[in-house]
């Protein structure tokens, strides 16, 4: 009983310390790379404007699988009892979405593209809420990267 409790508290503390430090570092990296890749433009529109001179297209995608830590999961478990905003999961998914978009943009830049049209995001739960499994989620961003003549974009 007390041994269980000690293990539980240690796991919770580990989850909190490592989870939070990973999250802080990840956000710093996201902000920096978003700045770097700001000139790769993303659009939700399916097709580029008629007058855009398209020189080439590529399917680009970014894929992220991110896992919750023990602390986040515990707080979410308590939250599930009373309802309300799952703040600990919100940051997790925010990070996953932005990371997926960043990876997609990275790929587009490798193709020499500066615009991505028809950008879509898909989310899939890996564990599907199964008990005692790792609560992790996949976010997949994809779109059509377009190479245009220089005069148009920048």
């Amino acid at each position: 009983m007390t041994a269980d409790l000690i293990v539980f508290v240690v796991l919770l503390a580990l989850g909190y310390v490592f989870g939070q430090s990973v999250e802080r570092r990840h956000y710093r990296s996201i902000l920096r790379r978003e700045q770097e890749l700001q000139d790769v433009l993303t659009f939700s529109a399916k097709l580029p404007p008629q007058d855009l001179k398209v020189e080439g297209t590529n399917l680009v995608s970014g894929n992220v699988v991110v896992s919750v830590d023990y602390f986040k999961r515990f707080v979410a478990g308590l939250r599930a009892l009373v309802g309300g905003r799952m703040r600990t999961y919100e940051t997790l998914l925010d990070r996953a979405r932005r990371e997926a978009v960043l990876r997609m943009k990275q790929q587009a830049r490798q193709f020499g593209a500066d615009m991505i049209f028809n950008v879509k995001l898909e989310t899939a739960s890996i564990s599907k809420g199964a008990k005692d499994s790792i609560g992790s989620v996949e976010v997949y961003a994809y779109g059509t990267a377009i190479n245009t003549s220089d005069s148009f974009s920048r």
């Binding site: 433009l41 515990f74 308590l78 009373v82 905003r85 703040r87 919100e90 940051t91 925010d94 615009m115």
Partner: peptide, 30 residues
């Protein structure tokens, strides 16, 4: 025609509240 993706302000999709605050209030309440 020029396009731009503006920088989106932070703290809209996430909460600036400290996670420990939520932890303490939830655990205490439950």
């Amino acid at each position: 025609m020029r396009f731009e993706n503006p920088k989106i302000p932070e703290g809209i999709n996430t909460s600036p509240d400290h996670p420990l605050k939520e932890f303490v209030s939830l655990l205490g309440g439950v």
